[in-house]
Nucleic acid binder design. Structure first.
Lengths: 196, 196
DNA sequence: TCAAATAGTGAACATTGTTCATTTTTTGAC
DNA sequence: GTCAAAAAATGAACAATGTTCACTATTTGA
């Protein structure tokens, strides 16, 4: 008869997180309201706090889901692609596509975590390292003269540049480019970064 | 005897904005609280709302100040520099320096305005066009084969790439690079973007 | 001098994150 | 099966904050 408590606890945590992800997907960062999520998940506000210390913890949990999804998308992007330059192009397109298709999740992931004094959870750091790993491998093949440290720095630079292009492309403030222009600019950036 | 009302109104608006800028500088986006700002400026909350429709309007006003400061920094950066590649490098360094020295203002400027349905104010669009203009001019000299439209797209791409590097460098999530490495990576990026 | 217009006030309200005393359910020993 | 302790769940209450608005104080122009 034992095990009911554990199962209930896990289900509650899972359903709360599901409701939180859906809330962010629908309404962005601001839609992550405890009362709303508790109601959507079918619990009271108190139950949410039993599993997540505060709103930040819930955002962090949503971000963890987002990172996992990005990782999956990146892994699929390079699947079966052997040419390093083509790998980088595929990764760039996958990253842009994810941001466009999951705009609210992506924006929440990069919406100033910096303001908080809390350190980044280990799981996030690991996921980010994995993401950078996708870029590091083709880069290593293209720039064979780099030592490990330089490669790590170069990898981050390449990711950051692509990230910036994606971030700016999602902003309304900058006059929008056509989809074709954005893609060609992105490919230009990848080629220049790859030294081609 | 006339003119007192106008002077008072303008002073109130100015002092409220000054308090708002200082609040953001000190505590970031989250420090922009109406009560706190009203008290700092020496007015009641109602007076703040006489000059700014809501919190968003006040953030927008702060962002306008930030954009003007960035524009000034960029203008100073290229002053007396004639070589186009050196101009781009100076602009990149100035942009990074501003973000580092005015981290909270910079972050607030790029903290998801996207969530709001409100359109970007004209003054912001104009300032952003001016900022891109600083980059467009040296780019035009370096890539003489581009037509106006392609140059505009390329300019945005270069800005976005630099912006991404700056944004990621300010994040704690990514293991920090030394100042020297960051600068050398930034120069690498500029040179590659410039086709050198 | 005075009535209208403007500037300024702050109490009151609505929303939302958070806490905690209480109730309901589960567990394991007897 | 009984029951006391532990865990899960509840929701009222509190605190912080954005926003409104009826009211007061000041300025204006005739």
């Amino acid at each position: 008869m034992a095990g009911i408590q554990k199962a209930k606890s896990e289900e509650t945590q899972r359903r709360v997180l599901e409701a939180a992800v859906k809330a962010v997907e629908r309404g962005g960062f601001e839609a992550l309201q405890i009362r709303r999520i508790a109601a959507d998940a079918g619990y009271s506000v108190g139950s949410v706090y039993k599993h997540y210390a505060d709103q930040d913890a819930l955002v962090t949990a949503v971000d963890t889901v987002t990172l996992a999804r990005i990782k999956t998308a990146m892994a699929q992007a390079v699947e079966g692609v052997s040419d390093p330059l083509e790998q980088l192009k595929a990764l760039a397109r996958a990253y842009l596509a994810f941001a466009q298709e999951h705009r609210n999740l992506w924006q929440t992931l990069f919406a100033l975590k910096m303001a908080e004094g809390a350190p980044t959870p280990d799981i996030h750091v690991q996921e980010l390292v994995d993401l950078l790993g996708f870029i590091a491998e083709p880069l290593r093949q293209l720039e064979d003269g780099l030592d490990a440290e330089a490669l790590a720095a170069r990898t981050r630079t390449c990711f950051a540049a692509l990230h910036g292009l994606v971030a700016i492309s999602l902003e309304d403030r900058f006059v929008g480019l056509t989809t074709e222009t954005l893609d060609s600019e992105m490919m230009f950036l990848v080629e220049r970064l790859a030294g081609r």
